[in-house]
Design a protein around this nucleic acid. Structure first.
Length: 265
DNA sequence: GTCCAGGGGTATC
DNA sequence: GATACCCATGGA
């Protein structure tokens, strides 16, 4: 087991805030399978313990970024400040772009347990088995190539979108997105069938760390209408509002708002 | 703007 | 256990 000590990090809030789906609870920690790694990780107070290499974990959980300055900016807003205090340590992850793209294509009009199920089934049907039997890596681009089998993963009307993305997306497509501006990368992603503004924003935020992204789902729509606008508004307007108002950390703000709103009641 | 495309989660009975 | 409604949506 390796370990690192750190402030302002919550493994639970980070994993369970709807940005990432490839984890399962395992005793007092989590089993994660992503980016050709399968490992166990747990947190005990400020100590993070895991059976994979340190640099991998730091990269995956954005532990090298200066979270303190981000936090100082976030807490200037009253509601965000409440969310940051309540769910302190929630960090944006740096996911594998391909896994993230397919996961969020699956997310369309769905829910978190079902997205997890879709991804686990796709991995089982198309991915390589890990050293531990019964667990599978997520298949690389090009491997998710049978429409019938994709349907058998309970993907429903999203099956054609996944099939299509698998045919079009390759390494050069994915690498290019990282080099483009937010706007240009978003346009590229939206060329894919089944990828609109919301899903493009999720991929740009959760895999590429583009902070201009402000994904708007029903929870974000509700919380912005209720706390900031005081009236109903279109998704498009809310996306533009959030992106502008919460710059330069619109993406981080969105994640705290989403987690906050969903855990109310 | 409206409607519809799997299907599992969730509340309510 | 039936039933209705909901959902990290986008396309027609």
């Amino acid at each position: 087991m390796n370990s690192i000590i750190l402030n302002d990090f919550s493994l639970q809030h980070t994993l369970e805030s709807g940005q990432f789906f490839r984890y399962t609870k395992d005793n007092d920690g989590y089993r994660i399978i992503t980016k050709a790694q399968s490992f166990f990780i747990k947190q005990k107070d400020q100590q993070l313990l895991f059976d994979t290499n340190v640099d991998f974990v730091k990269e995956l959980f954005s532990l090298n970024e200066d979270f303190n300055s981000i936090k100082n900016h976030l807490i200037k807003d009253k509601l965000i400040s409440k969310a940051v205090n309540k769910y302190t340590g929630l960090r944006l992850m740096k996911q594998d772009p391909w896994e993230c793209l397919i996961a969020f294509i699956c997310s369309s009009a769905s829910n978190i347990p079902k997205i997890k199920k879709n991804i686990d089934l796709l991995s089982q049907k198309f991915g390589k088995e890990t050293q531990e039997k019964g667990f599978y890596y997520f298949p690389k681009q090009g491997k998710i190539n049978d429409l019938k089998t994709i349907r058998a993963c309970a993907t429903g009307f999203r099956a054609e979108y996944i099939f299509n993305a698998n045919q079009i997306v390759n390494n050069s497509f994915l690498n290019k997105l990282g080099k483009l501006s937010y706007e240009d990368a978003k346009k590229e992603l939206m060329q894919l069938k089944g990828v609109g503004e919301k899903i493009a924003d999720c991929v740009l935020l959760f895999a590429y760390g583009k902070q201009e992204a402000f994904p708007v789902d029903i929870w974000i729509k509700r919380v912005i209408e209720k706390h900031y606008l005081g009236h109903k508004a279109s998704t498009k307007l809310i996306q533009q509002f959030g992106q502008k108002k919460f710059a330069p950390y619109a993406g981080y703000t969105q994640q705290y708002l989403y987690h906050w709103e969903r855990l109310q009641n």
